[in-house]
Simulated assay, not measured.
Amino acid sequence: MERISDAANGREALFRLRNVGKTYDMGEIQVRALAGVDLDLYGGEFVVLLGASGSGKSTLLNILGGLDRPSIGTVVYRDHNLTDADDAGLTRYRREHVGFVFQFYNLIPSLTALENVALVTEIALQPVEPLRALGMVGLAQRKDHFPAQLSGGEQQRVAIARAVAKRPDILLCDEPTGALDYSTGKLVLDVLEQVNRELGAITVVITHNAAISAMADRVVHISSGAILGIERHVARARPSELSW
């Protein structure tokens, strides 16, 4: 696959990764998760990181989110050099700039949907009002329900509302449809597309489902810790048009 230059679109990259590598020490064995990754991300775009399990997608996502540091290379977000940041600096970066959506929802069982969303607004600089965030994912009417009273898809949508309530600059999603059935998964993708459009956050979704890639501005193909190629789409498919 031919790699398309990210610089060709003429915009300034908000994220710049250069020669990023990550190696984990597993006792006497070293496991290479990433090697030689160069990647730019631009404001408001929807990016899919596509690859099989173990390809390095989650490691790359964790480095983008400041949950992990590269072993080599540089990671810069705007004027934040994440490579050199200490733990306090990475915590501040995550709090002020990043929203996370994981495969499993991580909601607090004893709190209502609204209370789960409201938690993050207490630490955000310019939060979205919690009820509005729930409204963005179509769950304002379920605000007083506890997680156990919600379906899996509804819980995932609450998790998305919680992430977007921070008004993040970058929204990182780790297999957000992996635990959902087909129709519910498409509904969640529709919510992510809406959030990307309305908030203008860089949205990065990692998946092994190639069908999801059609809704992306760009698709980054990852295998064995390296980027094999980058596809750029002239037009994005709507989630309702996807099938798998």
Rank of each mutant, 00 (worst) to 15 (best):
M1I: 12
E2A: 15
E2G: 15
D6A: 15
A8W: 09
G10W: 09
E12V: 15
R18Q: 15
R18H: 13
R18P: 07
N19S: 14
Y24S: 09
D25A: 14
Q30S: 12
R32A: 10
A33F: 06
L34Q: 09
A35Y: 11
D38V: 03
Y42E: 01
G44E: 00
F46I: 11
V47W: 03
V47K: 00
G54Q: 01
S55Y: 09
G56D: 11
G56T: 08
S58W: 06
T59D: 10
G66Y: 00
G66R: 01
S71R: 02
I72Q: 14
T74Q: 12
T74H: 00
Y77G: 05
H80A: 10
A85R: 04
D87S: 14
G89A: 12
G89W: 08
T91L: 13
R92L: 14
H97I: 09
H97L: 08
G99H: 03
G99Y: 06
F100G: 04
V101M: 04
V101Q: 06
F104Q: 15
I108D: 10
I108Q: 14
T112A: 04
A113V: 02
E115I: 06
V117P: 01
V117H: 07
A118V: 02
V120W: 02
T121L: 09
T121N: 00
T121S: 10
E122G: 10
E129I: 08
L134Y: 02
G135D: 12
M136N: 00
M136K: 04
L139T: 00
Q141R: 13
H145Q: 13
P147Q: 04
E154A: 04
Q156C: 05
R157N: 06
V158Q: 09
R162C: 01
R162V: 03
A165V: 10
K166Q: 11
P168V: 05
D169E: 15
I170G: 03
I170P: 07
I170K: 02
L171A: 07
E175I: 07
P176Y: 10
T177W: 06
L180C: 00
D181C: 07
D181A: 04
V188P: 01
D190W: 04
V191W: 05
L192N: 10
V195K: 02
N196M: 08
L199A: 03
I206H: 08
H208A: 03
N209F: 00
A210Y: 09
A211P: 02
S213D: 07
V220K: 07
S223A: 14
S223E: 15
I227P: 05
L228C: 13
E231Q: 13
E231K: 11
H233P: 05
V234G: 13
A235Y: 13
R238T: 12
S240Q: 15
